[in-house]
Nucleic acid binder design. Structure first.
Length: 660
RNA sequence: GCCUGGGUAGCUCAGUCGGUAGAGCAACGCAUUCGUAAUGCGUAGGUCAGGAGUUCGAAUCUCCUCCCAGGCUCCA
């Protein structure tokens, strides 16, 4: 028997008898590796351990702690979930069950269109653990299309998948388990076979560090016109330690949830009397908003923006001209009728108003780029199931601007705009970004192919030049143009969509907005839509979660609280507060009606950046005790002037907040 | 909009078999005067989300509506 050569990740090569599998390779390398091995990456593709290796292959053994290893574990866990459900609900149809970030899911249709309830999770979990204890091997088989159709004749979703590929439809879908002439399956017992490309762990015994998390409805193939299936989500890991760490991460994320902190810190609320997705900002949240908006305004002044204002409602015709009633109507509140049948709509966007400001008189090329800025409140009738805290609301304020420029100015304008955006976000303490390019939405767009192509390639070039990671989002653009959105990663690694920059050739055309060019010709400007916060509400939510409520001093609603040790120190406390208030510091005195410890605790729970404690020594010497947020080590004897300087400097440079 | 779960005092929650509402914290009052994360005592606080039904009797069982959470679809 001749040998084959394989190359390992470290560059070395090994010689193995022909027909050897990746498991044989692992065993040849070491006992420990053979025990850990879950699958193999062969010439860049994930394969089962048991599969014979081709000659001259580049092979990496996939072990549990790696990303590939986790994917295999999660995918295999999904199979075990499906097997458990078919055991408990004989006749259940199973659809798809992939690995996802941190876990897996599987979609089912239960006999009689029954639904899972939360209580079912415990039974399914127990059944999965029984299957895992049975140590069932995963074995791969390949069949012809016809054999595959016969094998899954009782599984309509599998039949649909096989047929779709066999007929060459859906070429955009990644269905590696079916190729035009063969289907592959995995059986982990004679009683359960699934259509699957693999690979899988060698045996169910390699699984078990999982938790079923929730049940949900999910449309077949993500299409709301197709039947809704029953989905079960789970998380799965290579060890109990990793599982526990993940569950703890989820708990941490919950502690910094802006909805929870918004109530705890008395920032905002959603009174049911007002309606879903409609927030009120309390004094503290209102202060935070004001500071954010004021800072944004001053940056926009520096950035060459003009400030404008527009009303919240407008006549039907405006939104016909803009195209909103044609393309965006389902997100708009129904009209109100007045003045004998005239319909008025709440505005879902500010752009039509800004175009009218542009059009209010003749414009010259000398005025361009013209940048019109407004904190514009818009209303969108979001479907009832999608509103969520401040991140998805029905009434919001956008830090919205529309830039009118010439075609020639467009690339430079976009490039400087991107710099402007990133600088502003950095000033708020967000530092980790990537860009997403959203292109023409299928079947829901105005304008010619050529215009879209030009807009998309211009945006792509600017994004590329920014040197940030660029992710494609095909079909994600607005109806009037493609967009770049800036995604920010927060302190615990989650990403949030922040700023959007959209190119628009259509709106100026629809409104017949023109300027007089240097050659005296009436010319259509390009319009750039951009919102840097996205919405003030969402931006605040992201900041609250990023900082876990510990807002940097410049953004904190209350920056300093002064506590007298005894009530005969209150006068000095008020003197200190008055002095700092003259600098514009947001400061309060908590008078000594309760014990000092209780007042300190209260201030700490409110996440106030600085607590000043003043007693006999301080009254004598004109000093303060400074207890900074995040510190367990209060300073004593700090002079008022020293603290005053330090605070002013921190606020001026926006400080260095403890984000973690 | 669809699927699952939930809604009891300002907040967090208990409330057994259907028998008429309870705790802690917060609030308020009085006392306490204190040097870095909870002083003591007392008082008040509820149309059990709303409505309808079953029942002698409903926080509890049934139905409808509203709202919230997690998903799906959608999105700033």
């Amino acid at each position: 028997m001749s040998d084959i050569q394989v190359q390992l990740p470290d560059g070395s090569s090994r010689s193995l008898p022909a027909g050897s599998s990746a498991l044989d390779l692992a065993a040849a390398i070491g006992k420990r590796l053979a025990k850990d091995a879950l699958a193999a990456e062969v010439n860049g593709e994930l394969k089962d351990l048991a599969e014979p290796l081709p000659a001259d292959a580049v092979v990496a053994i996939v072990t549990p702690g790696s990303e590939n290893g986790r994917d295999v574990i999660r995918h295999s866990s999904a199979h075990v979930l499906a097997q458990a459900v078919t055991r408990l609900w004989p006749g259940a149809h199973y659809a798809i069950g992939p690995a996802i970030a941190d876990g897996f899911y599987y979609d089912f249709e239960l006999p009689g269109h029954a639904h899972f309830s939360d209580d079912d999770l415990g039974r399914i979990d127990a059944e999965m653990r029984a299957i895992i204890a049975e140590d069932q091997p995963f074995t791969r088989h390949e069949y012809t299309i016809d054999e595959g159709l016969a094998l899954f004749k009782d599984q309509p979703f599998k039949v649909e998948i096989i047929n779709a590929v066999a007929q060459g439809a859906n070429d955009e879908e990644d269905l590696g388990e079916v190729s035009p002439n063969a289907v592959s399956t995995y059986s982990n017992s004679p009683a359960f076979t699934d259509l699957c490309r693999g690979p899988h762990v060698p045996s169910t015994a390699r699984l078990g560090h999982f938790k079923l998390t929730r049940v949900a409805g999910a449309y077949w193939r993500g299409d709301e016109r197709r039947p809704q299936l029953q989905r079960i989500y789970g998380t799965a890991w290579e060890s109990d330690a990793a599982l526990v760490a993940h569950l703890e991460f989820l708990e941490q994320a919950e502690l910094r949830d802006h909805r929870r902190l918004g109530a705890e810190l008395d920032l905002f609320s959603f009174p049911t009397e007002i309606g879903p997705g409609l927030a009120v900002f309390h004094p503290k949240g209102g202060t935070m908003r004001r500071v954010m908006e004021d800072y944004s305004r001053s940056r926009h002044v520096d950035g060459g923006y003009e400030f404008v204002n527009s009303p919240h409602i407008a006549k039907e015709d405006l939104f016909n001209t803009s195209g909103h009633l044609q393309w965006f109507a389902e997100s708009m509140y129904p009209p109100m009728e007045l003045d004998g049948g005239q319909k008025y709509y709440l505005k879902p966007m500010n752009c039509p108003f800004h175009v009218l400001i542009f059009k209010s008189r003749q414009r010259s090329y000398r005025e361009l780029p013209l940048r019109l800025f407004e904190f514009g409140s818009v209303y969108r009738y979001e479907k009832s199931g999608v509103v969520q805290g401040l991140t998805r609301v029905r009434g919001m304020t956008q830090d919205d601007a529309h830039i009118f420029c010439t075609r020639e100015q467009m690339p430079d304008e976009l490039a400087s705009l991107l710099t402007f955006v990133l600088d502003l976000l950095r000033d708020f303490g967000l530092n980790d970004f990537y860009l997403e390019l959203s292109t023409r939405p299928e079947g829901k767009a105005v304008g010619t192919d050529q215009e879209w192509t030009e807009a998309e390639s211009t945006l792509a070039a600017v994004a590329l030049a920014a040197g940030l990671e660029l992710v494609q989002d095909p079909g994600g653009g607005a109806f009037y143009g493609p967009k770049i959105s800036v995604q920010a990663r927060d302190a615990i690694g989650r990403t949030h969509q922040m700023s959007t920059i959209q190119l628009d050739f259509q709106t100026p055309q629809r409104f017949e907005a023109t300027y007089i060019a240097s050659d005296n010709a009436r010319t259509q400007p390009i319009m750039i839509h951009r919102a840097l916060f996205g919405s003030v509400e969402r931006f605040m939510a992201v900041l609250i979660e990023h900082y876990a409520g510990n807002m940097p001093t410049w953004l904190s609603p209350e920056q300093v609280r002064v506590l007298g040790v005894r009530d005969d120190h209150d006068a000095y406390a008020r003197y200190v507060a008055d002095a700092l208030a003259l600098d514009g510091v947001r400061i309060h005195v908590d008078e000594a009606s309760e014990p000092l410890g209780a007042r300190i605790r209260k201030a700490k729970l409110e996440k106030i950046p600085y607590i000043l404690v003043v007693g006999d020594d301080d009254v004598d010497k004109g000093t303060l005790g400074v207890n900074a947020r995040g510190s367990n080590d209060p300073e004593r004897g700090v002079t008022l002037s020293a603290f005053r300087e330090r605070l002013a400097e921190e606020i001026a440079v926006h400080g260095s907040p403890e984000a973690k």
